[in-house]
Amino acid sequence: MISLIQTAEGALNESHSILQRMRELAVQSSNDTNTESDRAELQKEVDQLSQELSRIGNNTEFNTQNLLDGSFEGTFQIGANEDQNLTIDVKDMRGQELGMAGASEFSETVTASGSTELVDGTYTVDGTDLKDSNGNVIATTTDNLTFTSTGTAAETIVFSQKIEDGKITIQGGEATATAKFDNGGLEAGDYTINYSAGASTITDSNGNLVASSADDTIFKNADGDTVLTLDAAATTDMEISVGGVDISSQSAANSAITKINDAIETVSAERSKLGAYQNRLDHTINNLGTSAENLTAAESRIRDVDYDLAAA
């Protein structure tokens, strides 16, 4: 039993180190000496660290039993008689539960219906406006799905999922943007929406089933929890990616510091609980050892008394 606790605690020690590194990156990114490109590179490391948090949580096992995905609860016999036992549970210590998984993202490329007004370039989505690098509005939208140029040609870009922030890049008559969805339970990593009318599924990068949908819009896991809701029903296979906690801007990185601190405190509390269990069990073992020694001594005295009486 102590070995089981040590296995869990050892894994959490590494999770603790990962969170400390993520905090360093968030503090660095919250400094405006960094450019957008700098923050993008910092975000890459955070994304990978979040994936590793989830991998540790999913793969830490003792005798084939997973210890850190929230499913472990064990009862251990610590005495010789009925009900002399101890129950131990370990909370979910994966990235999503710790708040270290970011939004679900889907990169979509569609046809831009012209090149007179929607010329090649990279543009920024600002509310209902699409602006160029000089802040000029080149297109507007009422639903964040269809963007219509402000000129007389009324050229359009039509996405299947809402583009509410970020960049739209136009190149060679095609427009590419990233749609973001609230993440209800997906760990950091890459996923595929496998489209099948009325029966679409989500699988992870290893092909494991993660969630399914009866309407191609709302995807639920095996527990019935909604992990992803699309803006519009899927009509084809889609590649979805989930990164780590967002540090891609000064404000996002500033907020991430608090989120990471909370995660560190959660892991610290779980490690403290496991350490307390281990210390208790050490004393239990010592006590049982003393009891066994005293019982042996008592049994020896009784045997000696029986022998002496028989001899008399």
Rank of each mutant, 00 (worst) to 15 (best):
N66W: 04
T109Y: 01
T111C: 15
G151V: 11
D143V: 10
T152G: 15
L68V: 11
S149T: 06
L186R: 01
T141I: 10
D190N: 13
I157T: 06
S107C: 02
A101N: 06
E174V: 04
Y191C: 01
G184A: 10
E73P: 02
I168N: 03
E174K: 12
E117F: 05
G172N: 13
E164H: 07
Q84P: 06
A80L: 14
F72Y: 14
G121F: 07
E97V: 11
T87K: 15
N136T: 11
D190F: 03
E108L: 07
E97P: 00
E155M: 06
A112Q: 05
N58E: 14
G99R: 07
G57I: 04
T60W: 03
Y123L: 05
T141M: 03
K131P: 02
Y123Q: 07
S104K: 02
Q96D: 10
I168W: 01
D126Y: 01
E73G: 15
E108D: 10
R55W: 08
E187V: 01
N63W: 04
E105F: 05
T124E: 06
A177D: 00
F106V: 14
T64L: 15
S71H: 08
T128G: 01
L145D: 03
I170F: 09
A103T: 15
T178Q: 01
G114K: 04
D129L: 12
S113K: 09
E187I: 08
G74Q: 08
Q171D: 15
A177K: 00
V119Y: 06
T156N: 04
L86I: 09
G127P: 00
G95Q: 07
T150N: 13
A177G: 12
N58G: 12
